[in-house]
Measured scan of single mutants.
Amino acid sequence: MATDAALRRLLRLHRTEIAVAVDSAFPLLHALADHDVVPEDKFQETLHLKEKEGCPQAFHALLSWLLTQDSTAILDFWRVLFKDYNLERYGRLQPILDSFPKDVDLSQPRKGRKPPAVPKALVPPPRLPTKRKASEEARAAAPAALTPRGTASPGSQLKAKPPKKPESSAEQQRLPLGNGIQTMSASVQRAVAMSSGDVPGARGAVEGILIQQVFESGGSKKCIQVGGEFYTPSKFEDSGSGKNKARSSSGPKPLVRAKGAQGAAPGGGEARLGQQGSVPAPLALPSDPQLHQKNEDECAVCRDGGELICCDGCPRAFHLACLSPPLREIPSGTWRCSSCLQATVQEVQPRAEEPRPQEPPVETPLPPGLRSAGEEVRGPPGEPLAGMDTTLVYKHLPAPPSAAPLPGLDSSALHPLLCVGPEGQQNLAPGARCGVCGDGTDVLRCTHCAAAFHWRCHFPAGTSRPGTGLRCRSCSGDVTPAPVEGVLAPSPARLAPGPAKDDTASHEPALH
Rank of each mutant, 00 (worst) to 15 (best):
A193S: 08
R8P: 01
T3A: 11
A144I: 10
A264K: 06
A170S: 07
R190L: 03
S196G: 09
A61L: 01
V118K: 02
G269Q: 08
E229K: 05
S135N: 07
G208I: 01
V188L: 13
K165S: 05
V188M: 14
S24M: 10
P143R: 05
G54M: 06
A142T: 06
T16S: 00
S168F: 14
F230W: 09
T16E: 15
A141H: 12
R110I: 13
H30G: 01
A117T: 12
L28A: 01
L87R: 12
E237C: 12
K120N: 13
S196Q: 11
K259M: 13
P176R: 15
L146A: 04
G269F: 14
L32P: 00
L255D: 03
R149P: 08
S169T: 01
Y85N: 00
Q262M: 04
G155P: 01
R9E: 01
S248V: 07
A6H: 05
Y85L: 03
F26S: 02
L62A: 01
V104G: 01
E237F: 00
E207P: 04
R15G: 00
E17Q: 00
S153H: 14
R12S: 01
K114F: 07
P125F: 09
E171Y: 14
E137Q: 00
A142V: 13
P148C: 14
P266H: 11
P39Y: 00
P124W: 15
I181C: 03
G269I: 11
L273Y: 13
L28E: 00
R149W: 11
S135H: 15
L255Y: 09
R110V: 13
A261H: 05
G263A: 08
A6N: 01
Q189D: 06
D84H: 03
G91Y: 15
L146C: 05
G155I: 03
D70M: 00
P27I: 03
K111C: 14
E171Q: 12
A25L: 12
A265S: 10
N244L: 03
P39T: 13
A264M: 10
K133L: 01
G208Y: 01
Q44C: 01
F215C: 04
P125R: 07
E171S: 15
K42Y: 00
S249V: 12
A144G: 14
E229M: 02
R203S: 07
G263F: 03
P116A: 07
Y231A: 06
V206F: 07
A117C: 11
S64P: 07
G201A: 07
Q213S: 06
P109F: 12
A193D: 10
A265F: 15
K50R: 07
A264G: 13
E229W: 01
P115S: 15
V123F: 14
D34Y: 01
A61G: 03
E51V: 02
K42C: 01
A134V: 14
E51Y: 00
A73H: 15
A142N: 04
R247K: 13
G267S: 08
A271C: 10
G112L: 14
L28K: 08
G218T: 11
Q69C: 02
P115K: 01
D84I: 00
A191T: 13
I181N: 15
G197D: 05
V214C: 10
H48R: 15
R110M: 03
I18C: 00
T183C: 15
A152P: 05
K165C: 04
R127Y: 04
F26Q: 00
P163A: 03
A73F: 02
G242A: 13
R203G: 05
R15Y: 00
T147H: 13
I209N: 06
Q173M: 15
K131D: 01
G228A: 04
K102Y: 14
P101W: 00
S64T: 04
F43S: 02
R257D: 12
V118T: 06
E51L: 03
P27R: 02
Q69H: 01
P252F: 09
V38M: 04
D23A: 00
A58Q: 00
I181W: 12
P125W: 14
R8W: 01
E171V: 15
R174N: 00
D4F: 04
P124N: 07
G242Y: 15
L67R: 00
G242R: 05
G201H: 10
T130V: 07
G204W: 02
L47R: 00
W65E: 02
S156F: 15
Q157D: 04
P39L: 01
Q212G: 04
R127V: 07
R12P: 02
G251T: 11
S24I: 02
S187R: 12
T68V: 05
L106E: 02
V104P: 04
M194K: 05
C55V: 05
Q57Y: 05
D23V: 00
L10H: 15
R89W: 09
Q157G: 11
E229L: 02
D23T: 01
I211M: 04
K221F: 01
E136C: 13
K83R: 01
A2T: 03
G269N: 03
R247Q: 06
A5E: 14
P200S: 11
L97D: 07
V38A: 00
E53S: 06
R139V: 09
M194T: 03
A205T: 12
R272H: 04
A186W: 02
